[in-house]
Simulated scan of single mutants.
Amino acid sequence: MIKISNLKKYYGKNRGIEDVSIEIKEGEIFGLIGPNGAGKTTTIRILTGFLSEDAGEAKINGFKLPEDINKVKKDIGYIPGEVNFYGDMKIKEFLKFNRNFYDNVDVKYEKEIIELLGIDINKKFKELSLGNKKKVAILQALVHKPKYLILDEPTSGLDPLVQQKFYSLIKDHKKMGCAILFSSHILSEIEKLCNNFAMIKEGKVIKSGAIDDLRDISSRVITVYGLNDTLNNFKFTEKNNAKEFLVKTKDIHFFIKELSNFNFEDIEIKKPDLEELFLKYYK
């Protein structure tokens, strides 16, 4: 189990996190969601032993962090938000080097991930694109089949096809009983993958619960062109011969049904900017 209780961290006078408490059980994917600067990475850096807390505590399998990080390090898989390994080392050399840190690297599983993600192991790390660097980070984090996965914006830089492959890998580890912390600012992937979530704002958890509770704030921006009428149940703003609606995800079916009673030229549905959505929710 991963357990964080009333965690606090400041960088001098600047706030990192103020009060964060979450609990992640085995076989669970827990989404930590918030805009940039909310405190997600600070929380993760304490969990992975890179930072010490000012107050509260973080534990993995009962071991307090960062003091006892060496007792659980071999059981952790970690994907950082920014991936930086040894630039002049070829990927195949890096993987051989990485095996020295774990007792249980499954070489067959290593090859399966390499093939699934399409990793060129003959290239040097510095020669890779951002997306290909992230693939290596995924491989390095999963290859020893850890009991705990800590993922900081793991899909940034990945194209949609690789993202789907990554999701399938994460789901497999969940089935193995892995406790997974999945930090993201992408609401849709938290909805898709996670069992529970916590929303963090200015270093504090302001909302948490089962993933179904996210439907109360999860929305889509629906722009309708050439609509001369109004929909009684939905507010809108006028933008260049179009009406823009912010519709809760759970209400989209009802919205489309209502809209079908009127004439319009075109419709566009997209995810809102998470920062904007959070500002609306915070108010």
Rank of each mutant, 00 (worst) to 15 (best):
65 L>N: 10
242 A>P: 01
58 A>W: 03
153 E>S: 11
50 F>S: 12
131 G>M: 11
99 R>Q: 13
124 K>D: 03
25 K>F: 10
96 K>Q: 11
181 L>V: 06
259 L>Q: 04
17 I>K: 00
38 A>I: 02
159 D>S: 09
117 L>Y: 00
230 T>H: 02
30 F>E: 07
210 A>Y: 10
133 K>Y: 03
55 A>S: 15
205 V>W: 00
215 R>D: 15
250 K>H: 08
106 D>N: 11
178 C>T: 13
243 K>N: 07
102 Y>G: 04
180 I>S: 06
158 L>V: 03
279 L>E: 12
37 G>K: 06
156 S>H: 07
54 D>L: 05
61 N>K: 04
76 I>S: 07
169 L>Q: 08
36 N>W: 00
194 C>K: 03
46 I>A: 12
133 K>T: 05
153 E>K: 13
283 K>N: 14
53 E>V: 08
235 K>F: 01
276 E>M: 09
4 I>V: 15
136 V>G: 02
187 L>G: 07
45 R>C: 12
185 H>A: 10
116 L>H: 08
199 M>E: 04
233 N>M: 00
223 T>D: 01
119 I>V: 11
262 F>W: 01
40 K>W: 06
278 F>N: 02
251 D>I: 04
113 I>N: 02
100 N>L: 15
93 E>F: 02
236 F>V: 05
267 I>E: 02
74 K>D: 12
150 I>V: 12
27 G>V: 00
240 N>Q: 13
179 A>K: 01
175 K>G: 01
67 E>P: 00
50 F>M: 14
241 N>F: 12
180 I>D: 04
193 L>N: 01
42 T>S: 15
254 F>P: 00
1 M>A: 04
237 T>F: 11
188 S>C: 09
75 D>W: 03
135 K>E: 03
115 E>M: 06
259 L>D: 02
231 L>W: 09
136 V>E: 10
92 K>S: 14
199 M>V: 07
73 K>L: 09
254 F>H: 12
61 N>Y: 04
18 E>H: 08
23 E>Q: 14
78 Y>S: 02
231 L>S: 09
218 S>R: 13
204 K>E: 15
90 K>I: 05
210 A>C: 07
197 F>L: 00
220 R>A: 09
162 V>C: 04
156 S>F: 00
201 K>A: 10
147 K>C: 05
279 L>A: 13
227 L>T: 12
266 D>A: 15
25 K>E: 14
62 G>A: 01
246 L>C: 14
51 L>F: 11
256 I>A: 00
105 V>K: 03
8 K>A: 14
53 E>N: 14
106 D>H: 10
217 I>T: 09
20 V>D: 11
256 I>M: 13
90 K>W: 01
6 N>G: 13
16 G>E: 08
